[in-house]
Simulated assay, not measured.
Amino acid sequence: MATGLTTPLTESLGCRHPIVQTAMGWVADSRLVAATSNAGGFGFLAAATMTTETLRREIAAVRAATDRAFGVNFHMFQPNANEVIELILDNADRVRAVSYGRGPSAATIRRFKDAGVLCMPTVGALKHAVKAVELGADLITVQGAEGGGHTGAVPTTLLLPQVLDAVKVPVVAAGGFHNGRGLAAALAYGAAGIAMGTRFLMTAESPVPRSTLQKYIEVDDPARIRASTAVDGLPQRMIDNPFLRKLEQGGLLRRLFVALFSAWRWRAHTGMSPAQMVKTFFAALREGDGAIQTMMAANAPILIQRAMVQGHPDEGVLPSGQVAAVLDTLPPVAEVIEAIVREAQARLAALGALSRPCGPPAAASRSGEGEEAARSAVAHAQTKEST
């Protein structure tokens, strides 16, 4: 078993490795979260697509399957947000962190902090990172454009250093990570660890039906995993498929029809009454959101559910980071984490060897001492890990 890598992330969350499993709607369930936490990472439950009772059961299932801490993700715009918050606080002895996009108020964040629950929002822009810290975030996950689902336009290699320079809290890098080289690179940038979604989606413990996972295995061109605004009006990275193209080409009337259907289906899932739907709609209008985009907000969870839960990948959408194009197996979570940590330790050892004092350039050139030292460092690290 690989030894742990200690960073501000592991110290804050109490995990052994600086690897976070993100909260993918319909995917990050109790089994995946428990497997991640048991393997030394830190897993987030995707409460944004759960009813209150489902979340209650899922939290209990994680507690029963692991003695490690875990996290819960939610959004303030979901109908049961207040109930989710109370459930999290009731389980604050094990729920170590919460993640979110559009964040809760400063007062709610204070309630979490008073209960010992860390606030760890995910952002895709520099200004959002700064604002999140101002509101009280303890850690920040920064997702570059390579990431799956809702994403920004700035690649990780540009966004990550910008945020690292702008905030004083630990920063977790997301978007494009799937192996030990990526973890070593993120740590070299100054990040406290990495967060991955697609890599965990493509594991043995993933609840996604095999018919849908096969689409992730088959995609081999990163260009086929692209961002589109057709689902809910916001950029969302997905695997290209016939349904997405039909949605994009269908025009306003087709999008409106799909939006209305999705909104009604989502109302039934959450228990939201027609009156609450109308109230939410007009509240969004007052805040300046477009009416169509407001109704389209229900599209994402319903269209994702069709593919990711019901197993009909050509009748829904497939959120994915571009890394799916370089992944073609479904290994166990423990194997994924172990391999990432081992490779990261080997790369860090090799980098450390490059900084040692070296002799005259001519002598090094004749004997190949520099390359040999790097190889020896890697071999030593691997030997040490296996003992």
Rank of each mutant, 00 (worst) to 15 (best):
L45M: 12
P207H: 02
G149C: 04
A230R: 06
L260D: 05
A60V: 05
E372K: 14
T36A: 07
Y216R: 11
R57Y: 14
T212K: 05
V169F: 04
V98W: 01
G103K: 06
N80T: 11
R94L: 06
L13T: 05
P161C: 08
F77R: 06
M120F: 12
A132T: 02
A65S: 10
R68F: 02
R254K: 15
A69F: 13
G193A: 04
L247K: 12
A268V: 14
R286C: 09
E315M: 07
S12P: 00
Q322I: 08
A39Q: 00
G316C: 12
D221I: 09
Q276A: 13
L87Q: 12
I337C: 09
Y189W: 13
I302Q: 15
M50K: 03
K279T: 11
I85K: 02
A188M: 08
L256Q: 15
G101V: 08
A39T: 03
T198G: 05
F44K: 11
M24C: 06
E315H: 11
V72K: 03
A145H: 07
P301Q: 13
A185C: 09
L87H: 06
A334M: 03
A325I: 00
P155Y: 03
A268C: 15
K384Y: 10
P357A: 14
A204M: 12
A307F: 09
L213D: 01
E134V: 06
T141H: 05
R181T: 14
E287H: 12
I304G: 08
L354G: 11
R342V: 14
A125Q: 11
T141V: 15
E385G: 04
M277I: 08
L159G: 05
P121M: 02
L330A: 10
A379T: 02
I59Q: 03
I88E: 04
A227K: 12
G25T: 08
D114H: 10
T151Q: 08
E335A: 13
A324D: 02
A275G: 12
L9G: 05
V33L: 00
H178M: 12
D314Y: 10
I109S: 01
L87V: 09
W26A: 01
R255K: 15
